[in-house]
């Protein structure tokens, strides 16, 4: 071992703050590196492959119909990738740290457990955001190229022989454009992101007490599915008078304990070309923030006493 200057051992540890956003970001960026080096971004290739296959399909319908199909399948796939990724990656990260005992190393440094939890969540959310942005980019490119092609073809077909008035041509083009690439589609991507954020926070909570990653994944998927039955549960609750006590109890539990994922289906309306209500989007964003805070708090309640 080489001779080293005495300064190496000079006791001079830095003062430590009670909560540091810097430390949260260090954990977050390490989670991002971890996910990237686990080659998780490869699923983007699978998405690109789906889009390529989709582009080669020629369903028996109108140009607007084709665009609508491309849009619905690609956004649907994007949504699945996002929430599934949120569940799997979150369910793997913390148990993996515990299993590999990397958590020992991290928690023996001046790091608060809440900082660790928030850092992990932010890391996953960052990767989801980047993935969604890339997928949206691929999808936008595909939609735009198809849309331009159709518009050119329609214009050619309609203008040949001057059979159609300018308004009719315009109406036909507008029909295609409505199903094509529109700015509002970004809001549909936001909806997927918000949903994935809630899914990730619920999975983090589950993984703080779960015995295995598999358990967290299965329970989180179950909660996800049940979370889409809120409105159905409400209508049962309100309109079915002959419910047994048990059914009623179950429905009430679903409403109270399970997050309402159905709300996040507002992307479906946007994809179908409905006008976006920005005030509702803001409310959804706010609600998501509250979900994150509550579930991180619940995770901390379990995690703070956890012994390693």
């Amino acid at each position: 071992m080489s001779q080293s200057p005495p300064s190496v051992f000079e006791p001079a540890s830095k003062p430590v703050s009670p909560f540091s956003f810097g430390r949260v970001m260090v954990i977050a960026s390490s989670s991002v590196t971890q996910l990237v080096r686990m080659k998780t971004f490869y699923f983007l290739l699978a998405f690109a492959a789906i889009i390529v296959v989709l582009m080669s399909l020629n369903p028996p319908t109108t140009p607007a119909g084709v665009l609508s199909t491309i849009k619905r399948i690609s956004f649907g796939t994007m949504d699945i990738f996002a929430w599934l990724f949120a569940i799997v990656s979150t369910a793997l990260l913390i148990p993996k740290d515990i299993e590999d005992r990397t958590l020992y190393t991290i928690l023996s440094k001046p790091v608060r457990r809440i900082e660790y939890l928030i850092g992990k969540l932010l890391g996953v959310l960052f990767v989801i955001a980047v993935s969604l942005a890339v997928m949206y980019g691929i999808c936008a490119l595909a939609l735009f190229s198809r849309e331009s092609l159709y518009i050119a073809e329609e214009l050619g077909a309609m203008q040949a022989g001057a059979q159609y008035s300018a308004e009719e041509v315009e109406a036909q083009i507008a029909l295609i454009q409505q199903q094509g690439l529109r700015l509002e589609l970004g809001i549909a991507v936001l909806a997927s992101f918000l949903k994935s954020a809630v899914v990730a926070s619920v999975t983090i909570f589950l993984s703080t007490f779960a015995s295995s990653s598999l358990f967290s994944i299965i329970i989180s998927v179950l909660i996800f599915i049940i979370g889409h039955a809120h409105t159905m549960a409400t209508s049962f609750w309100l309109y079915q008078t002959d419910n047994s006590l048990l059914v009623e109890l179950i429905l009430k539990c679903v409403k109270i304990f399970i997050p309402n994922y159905q709300l996040y289906s507002f992307s479906h309306g946007i994809i179908q070309g409905e006008a976006v209500s920005y005030s509702l989007v803001w409310q959804m964003t706010g609600l998501t923030g509250v979900y994150l805070v509550v579930f991180i708090f619940l995770s901390l309640l379990v995690f703070i006493d956890k012994e390693f």
């Binding site: 409105t231 409400t234 209508s235 309402n260 709300l263 479906h268 309306g269 409905e274 209500s277 509702l280």
Partner: peptide, 14 residues
């Protein structure tokens, strides 16, 4: 919120 989203056609009713 669900009612509003259904009314604005952003969410499909069950």
């Amino acid at each position: 919120l669900v009612r509003d989203l259904i009314d604005t056609k952003m969410v499909v009713p069950p």
